[in-house]
Design a protein around this nucleic acid. Sequence first.
DNA 1: AAGGCGGGGGC
DNA 2: GCCCCAGCCTT
Length: 381
Amino acid sequence: MNERTLKAAFSEGLLGWYKVAKRDLPWRRSRDPYHIWISEIMLQQTRVDTVIPYFNRFVERFPTVADLAAAPEEDVLKAWEGLGYYSRARNLQAAAREVTERYGGRVPDDKAAVSGLKGVGPYTSGAIMSIAFNRPEPAVDGNVMRVLSRYFCIDEDIARPATRIGMEGLARKLIPEGEAADFNQALMELGAMICTPKSPSCLVCPVMEHCQGRQAGREEELPIKTKAKPPKPQYRLAALTLDASGRVLVRQRPEQGLLARLWELPHAEIPDAEQWRSAEAAPALFEAAMAAEGLAIRAERHIADAEHIFTHLHWYVRVWTAELTDGGEAAGTGSGSLPEGYRWIGPAEFEQLAWPNLFRKLLAQHFSGALEAAAGAERRI
DNA sequence: AAGGCGGGGGC
DNA sequence: GCCCCAGCCTT
């Protein structure tokens, strides 16, 4: 079979399968390019099942581009809480403001304009142009690279940017006339449902017959991908500090970087794991580290441990109860002696602010009494 | 080209 | 435990 026939068989088989097998997803019930856009940003590095509830809440809370553009940033962050990669939320709102001001609140049917929006890269621009406007642009994500690597038995490392460029050229040629929206979604659907990373379901695959990877017996070893580096361990101590009325001392993270603008318990890295672990050495190191950030505390008692794995970091977080050492003024009614970004919160404020999952879980346990109960049980042993 | 940037599901 | 996911941005 020649190359042209191989491609035609692929496109026809895949498209025919998709038209009868496609999943009923919330954003597929809409033709609104704004909805397509929201869904594609949320779906970056995030699974469909995770995105669905976020998508539904988000479009209800921000029904139009103008609503999103006009919303307080903290509202957008709260709507994104738990979804991860929070720069997506900030970029999305910045882009919504650009669409409102420059394009009258409508997502432009223009490849260059869409590509220029913050948070929209090669994949997402192709997805919006094809799915929302049926333009024949490729939308090459991890699914597509896996499917194409297998079907055409391509050995190139999909971690290399150059490989994605090549895949885009191939994917562009595969789009059947006038079928960009369905075909691009079919490619991703096949990758998600049939041509999975592990144990692909070749026997029910609509294009198995001509799959070059399977014919070579290599469907399990493709695609080729260089391994990611393991996350770097970081040992951190966090302070659970209460005032007289039971409120908890928390702080907001900086505007840039990891977990930007989310809220957290005050904490500091202890570079030496052994010292971090040591009940004798840890308090003084913790107190010094917090003092360097302008917060004078005394660490009292180890109360909980938590772990959180990011793509590039592995946090080991040990929570100590703590007290402010600069007298009652800081623990009072917010007289201003707290460092910038710090505040006292009760259960009501806890629900309003946006937290990374690690601290959301810890504080939820504290406010429900579970944290102290567990520590008390441990102490009795 | 490499690294920063979350969180969860599947096996 | 390990892998990977409907990636983008900065350097």
